[in-house]
Design a protein around this nucleic acid. Structure first.
Length: 446
RNA sequence: GCCCCCAUGGUGUAGCGGUCAGCACGCGAGCCUUUCACGCUCGUAGGGCGAGUUCGAGUCUCGCUGGGGGUACCA
């Protein structure tokens, strides 16, 4: 068994393409079979080196590998030409100058039957499609469908200049590579009878086909940039974890049973089967990905999460901040907004300042806390800080919240931060007192 | 226009002729609580429509409607 993945080589690895890659990969790895990668672009207009590099990066990030060197369709032009010549010689194809106009006219004159041309010895190469019978497409997820040959046009397989067209190229490349299972998007379903027709003309047996349901955006339209993240590159930039993306993507169009939601990659490899792939299109729901990502993120060891965040932000020494923010974030890029105050001082949030610091209770609370913390020496930990702060609360007679929010704003500038005791503990005695004094002096962060 | 596919709550899905139609996200309420989250509890909401087959249909058949895909000398 051998599968192949052929990304659209436009640079971005779209989410739909990523899922197709994943399914192929799971299938191959689960069966100890091979997966080859092919760049389908007969003239390399789209597959620039930069674009191809981006695709490779995205696949690597997702943890999807393949066997052998990637195949560039453009490099196989000679082989394609050879097959075209063979088809011509065998009478399975002919040359015709008929263009779209002629085809339309023919169909109008023939009750919408498929276009049939004359061999003119010049022009584009068209495959001769039988007038009778039908072409059966067998698909693991969709069953069997019969396409009437009489309705199918004699399709162009090579341009007048001899360069091959997609339908011819895929079939030849799959054949030569010994591909046994073609797992691709359902947008190719209606094209499949063409491929089978070419295979028949070549005397070859069709591979096993599996057409995956398309992915849509929340509006039911084809998934695109308008819907937010549309490529795995964007997912990566937004701070999603590859393992979470893999898990989520696997579930878009496939399910194991009625209750399992979390699958390790090993489990996916073991359990995945084409037979359980659903037929109907799915909507990519970033909210659910987000939730799932948060679950994965919280399960990471602090050291591991720290390493990933340091790689992402290019900063070091994030560990302590990571430890107290881990259960508050669901994507990697939610970390910095919560942690920046530890490294860059309080942020400026006038509304928070007005509401909690520039008030009478706020100032009273801060003064009480300044005093309590001022007289607290070592050890300076979340526990000792808590004792001190709770003591201050008691002395003021305020509610805990009335004291803690002003402190939070004084120290971080905002009303949203990690736990207040942990925050004070991490900031340290000197810095905490400095920021408290600044607030008491009415000096707001700039 | 023609051809093909699809159809369970807002979303992803389970079911494979007899279930109180299950699970998860989301949403709502409550609990927890120093903010925001996390976590926990409860709740909300579903088989497009119409026929047929059957003792019995989300599950089988047909029609309709809706959505999607294809229909290039694009991939």
């Amino acid at each position: 068994m051998r599968v192949r993945f052929a990304p659209s080589p436009t640079g971005a690895l779209h989410i739909g393409g990523a899922r197709t890659a994943l399914y192929n990969w799971l299938l191959a790895r689960g069966r100890r079979a091979e997966m080859v990668l092919r760049i389908e672009d007969t003239d390399r207009e789209r597959s620039t080196p930069e674009n191809v590099e981006q695709i490779f990066d995205a696949l690597a990030w997702l943890g999807i590998d393949w066997d052998g060197d990637p195949v560039f369709q453009s490099a196989r032009a000679a082989r394609h030409a050879e097959v075209v010549a063979q088809l011509l010689a065998g009478g399975h194809a002919y040359r015709s100058t008929a263009g779209p106009e002629e085809v339309r006219a023919y169909k109008e004159a023939h009750d919408n039957r498929g276009f049939r041309g004359e061999d003119e010895g010049t022009g584009a190469v068209r495959l001769r499609v039988p007038d009778e019978g039908s072409t059966i497409v067998r698909d693991v997820v969709r069953g069997e469908t019969a396409f009437e040959n009489a309705l199918q046009d004699d399709l162009v397989i090579a341009r007048a200049d001899g360069t091959p067209l997609y339908h011819l190229a895929v079939v030849v490349d799959d054949l030569d590579a010994g591909i046994t299972h073609v797992v691709r998007g359902a947008d190719h379903y209606s094209n499949t009878p063409k491929h089978v027709l070419i295979q028949r003309a070549l005397g070859a047996e069709p591979p096993v086909y599996a057409h995956l349901p398309l992915l849509h955006g929340p509006d039911g339209k084809k998934l695109s940039k308008r819907h937010g993240a549309a490529s795995v590159q964007e997912l990566r930039e937004r701070g999603y974890l590859p393992e979470a993306v893999r898990n989520y993507l696997a579930l878009l169009g496939w399910g194991h049973d009625d209750e399992t939601t979390f699958f390790s990659t090993e489990e996916l490899v073991r359990l995945f089967s084409l037979e359980r792939v659903s037929k109907s299109p799915a909507v990519f729901d970033e909210q659910k990905l987000r939730w799932m990502n948060g679950r994965y993120l919280r399960e990471l060891e602090v050291a591991e999460l720290t390493a990933r965040l340091e790689a992402l932000t290019g900063r070091a020494g994030l560990g302590p901040a990571v430890a107290i923010t881990q259960d508050k974030i669901s994507t990697l890029d939610e970390f910095w907004p919560l942690a920046r105050a530890f490294f860059e001082g309080p942020v400026d949030d006038p509304a928070a300042w007005e509401k909690f610091v520039a008030t009478e209770t706020g100032r009273a609370a801060l003064a009480a806390v300044r005093e309590a913390l001022g007289s607290l020496s070592e050890p300076w930990t979340a526990d000792t800080v808590e004792t001190a702060l709770r003591g201050a609360v008691e002395r003021t007679g305020f509610k805990a919240k009335q004291v803690f929010q002003p402190v939070r704003v004084a120290l971080t500038g905002t009303t949203v931060s990690p736990g207040i005791f942990e925050t004070v503990a991490l900031l340290g005695r000197a810095e905490s007192l400095t920021r408290l004094d600044a607030a008491l002096d009415g000096r707001r962060a700039a």
